[in-house]
Design a protein around this nucleic acid. Structure first.
Lengths: 396, 396
DNA sequence: AGATATTTGTTGTGCTTGACCCCAAATGCG
DNA sequence: CGCATTTGGGGTCAAGCACAACAAATATCT
């Protein structure tokens, strides 16, 4: 609750942050564009870009032919040097990637595992894969830190995994373990929240300030909310647990479980069952779902659609977002009958709030989580570009 | 989406705003406290306070005996001059009040009406009551504007009432009408959202950054959400419509209505009915509810409690607030059995999110809405104290 | 009661930082 | 080829906060 005053120094910090973020997100490609979107003076932008260049964060290159009158403005692009390690531990595999300041996943390694790994095992794998990647990309790369997208509840303050049912982790200080093993500052957050951020900056949510993201995974439904462009964390960082919500059922016969939580009633497993499949990746699943004409598939699909619609309505009524993004198997459910789902949502949503909202499927496929985790690792740099001059691994 | 850069001028504006807000909210009472809570230098605070005093917004008075060592610091208090008109049009009455910069309701007039008033009638009454109040408080008072707390959906951008079922208003440009009739800049927002803000700054939510507020009124349930200390508006300002949500029912027998919306299932009218009352004000209602030992009251109360609990759980899972504030008849339902309600909420809430949350009744009684509306009218001044030097009614 | 420590107001100076002005450079267009 | 337009570059200016030194006002210690 520190309602802090504004030092002069903070102006510079914020401006550096703003410029670096614009370049990082690809929303400004030249100094001229930077002056336009920041409203700052040309000379100020010049100084800011020069400082960022001196910090090794951006590069100025020769202007491209723009076909416009006037002196061409030099391009400003993210420096290819700085990078982060993005990690996504899952039930069946641990994925580690290298993501540059341009937010592209440059390398990715996926290590399949045949059993639920303990935190210690996971950390060992992460350290091993990270080392492999670091030798692959060479020593000249400046690795800023590690970001983890964890399928579970993560305490924002210290990155402790409170509960990850999927992995079987409980009260696991994952960031500390990773920091000790890898020797880089680490941060962690809930996977769906990070995915929401990634979709906003680089996916369907580009330029959207208020969005709700729901991801349907194998083990449940997670979500993320973005308010005024800022990820909604809540007081401890546990926000977005749509899967544990209990939406009202229009028909009592729709209930299939005792608890009636969203992720029990609307589940990938139930759809796989009626589809007669045992296991399927996202693509196979969606193909099967879209192709099936079996009555029992239709019945189950419509049941889940009705329940999902109420859950979305509840979210829209409360949050009045501009966009609802559906990922994972929920994207497939949406793809099967977008208009039907919208109609159902509309029926139980406040009309005024319905007006402004769109429902879309997630745009970023497999890279979403790694990009989201990378954003987390980049966050301190983006927030204070000059403060991270030395690559000293500040163990927070 | 204007990611604006930081001008130097904005530093001064923000600092003036910060200081004025601290004084306005009573969170700093002396220059010494201001330096402590802003982190700014003593000399800077002196300059800022001097500027605010020159603007007629704060006064410096002789220091009070503080029993502490060191030179005593002069008190800084809101100037008694500036004030706003706060308005709350309701089904049965229109209330208008004068609120000073100290956030106290200095005067209030309540005009009972015997029928649902049209916007034009309401505006006429508002203008009349405002004029009466203005002559009462004298001409030396500087009236900054009018804030309206409307029981309905209000578009944030232009203050148009999209739909106020209680009043029967639809697509009503209420702020424009009031501006024309009163000759002061007017702004409007949903009553529950404003009440949430009032509770945060002056009620049970003091110092709380993330809270959810649910108000049980005669005609339904409204709500407001505050995230990181900022009221959650959503893309158009319609956020917080908890009343239209459909919470899941643990037992199908609990359903009493077709739609199953929260405000249909959990309603004051139903409780009045089982209590055998026809009409009652808040106090009478709560007394009757707390005193009753009738089985049918108990049954209905517990039914509503169960449904309310699920709705609260849904909100807590998604928003992870620090505090849930219940107002209106929901405060009475809570008062009857706080532990029982908490237990029910806990049962369907993510454990980690439950840890950090408290459920409390609203602290501000009848003044809540007027204070909330006044905050709305003060908002431009608080955001940019120097920009409002002349009392020129800027019709936004 | 007097001395001392502590806290805070006051004043003047200095540093940071962005704005602004003027000129040069580079492009498109007639 | 000249002109309009846009942008970069460098120097100057002004705004605003930090800081240091001193004075004032209080409590506490002796």
């Amino acid at each position: 609750m520190a309602m802090r005053g504004d030092k002069l120094e903070s102006v510079r910090r914020r401006n550096l942050s703003t410029v670096l973020e614009l370049v990082h997100q690809g929303r400004a490609q030249s100094r001229a564009e930077l002056t336009a979107s920041t409203g700052l003076n040309r000379s100020t932008i010049a100084a800011l870009v020069a400082e960022l260049a001196a910090l090794g964060l951006v590069n100025e290159t020769a202007p491209t032919a723009s076909k416009r009158v006037g002196r061409p403005s030099p391009r400003v692009v993210p420096d290819p040097g700085p990078a982060v390690i993005a990690v996504n531990p899952e039930l069946d595999a641990i994925t580690v990637g290298v993501v540059g300041l341009n937010a592209r996943v440059e390398h990715r390694v996926r290590r399949e595992v045949d059993h639920a790994v303990s935190p210690e095992e996971a950390v060992a794998v992460i350290a091993e894969l990270t080392d492999a990647l670091r030798t692959e990309i060479g020593d000249e790369r400046r690795i800023l830190g590690v970001g983890l997208a964890v399928p579970g509840l993560v305490r924002a303050a210290d990155g402790v995994v409170r509960w990850a049912p999927h992995l079987g982790w409980r009260e696991t200080p994952i960031t500390r373990l990773v920091e000790d093993a890898v020797g880089l500052p680490a941060s962690a957050d809930n996977d769906a929240s990070l995915a929401a951020g990634a979709e906003r900056i680089f996916g369907v949510g580009r330029g959207v300030a208020d969005l709700v993201y729901l991801n349907g995974g194998a083990s449940g439904i997670g979500g993320g909310v973005i308010v005024r462009g800022i990820p909604l964390g809540g007081v401890a960082g546990y926000a977005g647990e749509f899967g544990q919500n209990r939406p009202g059922l229009a028909d009592a016969a729709d209930r299939a479980t005792e608890h009636g939580t969203l992720e029990d009633e609307v589940s990938r497993a139930r759809l796989l069952e009626v589809l007669g499949l045992h296991a399927a990746d996202e693509l196979e699943f969606e193909e099967a779902l879209l192709a099936s004409r079996e009555p029992k598939v239709l019945v189950e699909l419509e049941r889940q659609q009705r329940i999902l619609a109420v859950a979305l309505s509840n979210a829209i009524n409360v949050l009045n977002p501009e966009l609802v993004v559906l990922g994972g198997f929920l994207a497939s459910v949406h793809a099967r009958d977008p208009e039907g789902l919208e109609l159902l949502v509309q029926r139980s949503t406040v009309p005024a709030a319905w007006e402004g909202v769109r429902i879309r499927r997630a745009a970023l496929a497999q890279d979403t989580l790694l990009i989201g985790a990378a954003e987390l690792a980049f966050a301190p740099l983006l927030r204070d570009p000059a403060g991270h001059s030395g690559s000293a691994p500040t163990t927070s």
